Amino acid sequence: MKTEGKKVLERSKDFIYRNARLLDRMRFAYHFENGTKADVLRALQAYQNEDGGFGNALEPDMRCPHSQPVTTESALLIIQEVSGFDHVMLEGILSYLQGISLPGGGLPRATTAVNDYPHAPWWTTEQDHMPSLNPTGSIVGILRKQQERTEFQAEHWFQEHIGFVWRCLEESATGPGDYHDAMQWISFLESASGEPERTAHYKRVLDKWLTGPNGIEMNIHAEGYVHKILDYARTPDSYASRLLQPDDVERHLDGLVNSQQEDGSWNITFPAVSPAGEQEWRGSFTVDHLITLKAYGRLD
């Protein structure tokens, strides 16, 4: 292992085992210490509720214990990370998603239950029955890409979600509204099959947006709540990677290494809802960034 990569990993390991929640300690062990998928899923399962959805501050800026769509999306992303779709948790997730599906398709971004608990201001929710591309597009994409369970994909409730996402894309003639919408587009379009011309059209729209002024932030020194190259191309096989120049990717990898804090963590770029929430985010982000550095060979 190169000296620089070894130091990055050692500092992060110390931070994670000192400060990160159990889930992120298990994720770190899985990726860097021959930990097991079962250990990650066991830690994740603690956030799952009786209705099959996920809550309990798995999304650190939403301290609501009740199940939420976006928190369930977070769980699916971790299940995808460790190829854990064979786990019994998926049965509960499908039941929960079917139960909160809105007429005509679409899942709510959040429900008004979040308002009763500490939460970031952007999670304040006025009604329970407003369908949203975020997180519907990502959830549909994740569930279509996995192959452990496929029978539900032909069911009416799931097909309505697919139709809803297509309508959202049709109504956005110039592309996504922001980074979060872009990730919904990417997840959904990467999983699309059976309609190649339609899919190709919206990929062209997406690509134009990603390479435009509102898309990928190329400035390595940009500050605040911005989303740079490695947010979109977390690994070399990410959708956006083909739109990037290798030299630009290397510059941002250098920047990521250099922005590691003395304690081994990486800071967040937005205000957290609480000190505990910030610490949880820093643990999660630290594992995420290490996965990226590993994928690009920077920890070899």
Rank of each mutant, 00 (worst) to 15 (best):
P60N: 10
P60I: 12
M62N: 14
R63L: 14
C64P: 02
C64K: 06
P65D: 15
P65V: 15
S67K: 09
S67L: 02
S67W: 02
Q68M: 07
Q68W: 03
P69G: 13
P69I: 13
V70P: 01
V70E: 08
T72L: 12
E73T: 01
S74P: 00
S74M: 11
A75C: 05
A75F: 02
I78D: 00
I78M: 01
I78T: 07
I79K: 00
I79W: 01
I79E: 00
Q80W: 04
G84V: 00
F85R: 02
F85G: 00
F85H: 04
H87W: 05
H87C: 06
H87A: 11
H87P: 04
V88I: 14
M89G: 01
L90W: 02
L94A: 06
S95P: 04
S95C: 09
Y96G: 02
Y96K: 08
G99Q: 09
S101Y: 02
S101N: 10
S101L: 08
S101I: 05
P103S: 14
G105V: 04
G106L: 04
L107N: 01
L107T: 01
P108G: 12
P108N: 15
R109M: 05
A110K: 12
T112E: 06
T112C: 05
V114L: 06
N115D: 05
N115F: 13
N115W: 08
D116R: 15
D116N: 12
Y117F: 15
P118R: 13
H119R: 09
H119P: 08
H119E: 07
H119N: 10
A120V: 03
A120C: 03
P121K: 06
W122C: 03
W122N: 11
W123S: 09
D128G: 06
D128C: 08
M130R: 14
M130I: 14
M130E: 11
P131L: 15
S132R: 12
L133K: 03
N134M: 14
N134Q: 14
P135H: 09
P135T: 11
T136Y: 03
G137M: 08
G137S: 12
S138T: 13
G141L: 03
I142K: 07
I142V: 11
K145P: 05
K145F: 00
K145H: 10
K145N: 12
Q146S: 07
Q146A: 08
Q146K: 07
E148Q: 09
R149G: 00
R149C: 01
T150W: 04
T150H: 13
E151F: 00
E151V: 03
E151D: 04
E151K: 08
Q153T: 09
A154D: 15
E155H: 07
E155W: 02
W157T: 07
W157A: 06
W157G: 04
Q159R: 15
E160K: 10
H161E: 10
G163S: 15
G163R: 15
F164L: 14
F164K: 14
F164G: 13
F164I: 11
F164Q: 12
L169G: 07
E170I: 07
E170S: 05
E171F: 04
A173C: 06
A173F: 05
G175A: 12
G175W: 11
G177T: 12
G177H: 13
D178T: 05
Y179P: 05
D181V: 04
Q184K: 07
Q184E: 13
W185D: 09
S187A: 14
S187M: 10
F188I: 13
F188L: 11
E190S: 10
